[in-house]
Amino acid sequence: MAGEILDNKGRGEAEWEWPAIHPEGRKLGLIAAGLSAFFLLIVGWGIIGWPLALASAGIFAFFRDPERVVPQTDNVILSPADGIVTLITETQPPFELQIDDGTGAACLPSGMVTRVSIFMSVFDVHINRTPVGGTVRRVVYIPGRAISAQLDKASEENERQHILVERSDGIRVGFTQIAGLVARRIVPFVKPGDILAKGQRVGLIRFGSRVDVYLPAGTDARVMTGQRVVAGETVLAEIGMRGLIEGISQ
């Protein structure tokens, strides 16, 4: 079939294809397109119709959902988001992922860990993916403010949703979806008890946002600030691997 790569030996055909549009975006895009058609074709108000047409195209582009090639190496932690790495810092995991919530669900231990923050602009794909495969132990939604997602304090003040995934070997990785200035809704695709494959879609954040990943203790980031990462493909870290990495700013 055209557009499908059958294997990694060069067999099959490949060509560019339009990425799929997530259902969350289809309805918004169609509403904008319908209003555009109304003002252009019925009312004749191009000053409103054409901006709505552009808005419709922008909405469809924002909610694009391309396929990804997920690395299958067991010990890697993948990026959950497309975007730019803006912060790598040592910090405590979120309080909501450390406390006993009374359900008996697993939690993260206290102690300093490495946090990798990924900022998504409105031009990035906003479908988020799980950095590891395993069982969803917690999904905690917290209402909050809407300050710039690029600021460090957004991790504690903005609307956010924490997700904790436990691998089959007991290693747990927490990550947080954070709404930004224009983001107004975090849409989850998973719930506690769900079993996820590595790189599986777990949710989206509308219109600009950030995702923080809390690496397990004893694990350092394999990316640098300023680096562009791709959800479900870029390796953020290897479990248990430590050490400084260096690069050249270009």
Rank of each mutant, 00 (worst) to 15 (best):
G3K: 08
E4F: 13
A14C: 01
E15P: 00
W18V: 14
W18Y: 13
G25C: 04
R26Q: 15
L28M: 12
I31S: 10
I31W: 05
I31G: 06
I31C: 04
A32H: 07
A32W: 05
G34W: 02
L35M: 12
L35P: 02
F38Y: 15
L40N: 05
W45H: 08
W45P: 00
I47A: 14
I47M: 11
G49V: 02
P51Y: 01
A55F: 09
S56W: 01
I59Y: 04
F63Y: 14
E67H: 12
L78V: 05
L78Y: 03
S79L: 02
S79A: 15
D82G: 04
G83C: 08
I84H: 09
V85S: 02
E90V: 10
E96Y: 01
L97P: 01
D100Y: 03
D101P: 09
G102C: 12
A106S: 15
P109R: 02
S110T: 14
M112C: 00
M112S: 15
I118Q: 08
S121P: 09
D124C: 05
V125P: 00
T135C: 09
T135R: 15
R137S: 13
R137V: 03
R138I: 02
V139W: 03
V139S: 04
I142W: 01
I142G: 00
I147W: 07
S148A: 14
S155T: 13
E156K: 14
E159I: 13
L164P: 05
L164E: 03
E166M: 09
R167S: 13
S168H: 11
G170R: 13
G170L: 12
Q177W: 00
I178E: 07
G180N: 12
G180A: 10
L181R: 14
I186L: 13
V187Y: 05
K191W: 02
G193A: 10
D194A: 14
A197V: 10
G199P: 07
Q200G: 10
V211E: 12
A217P: 09
T219D: 03
R222G: 00
M224R: 14
Q227K: 08
R228P: 05
R228Q: 12
L236K: 10
L236I: 13
I239W: 10
M241H: 12
M241P: 00
G243Y: 03
L244D: 12
I245A: 02
G247T: 10
G247S: 12
S249G: 06
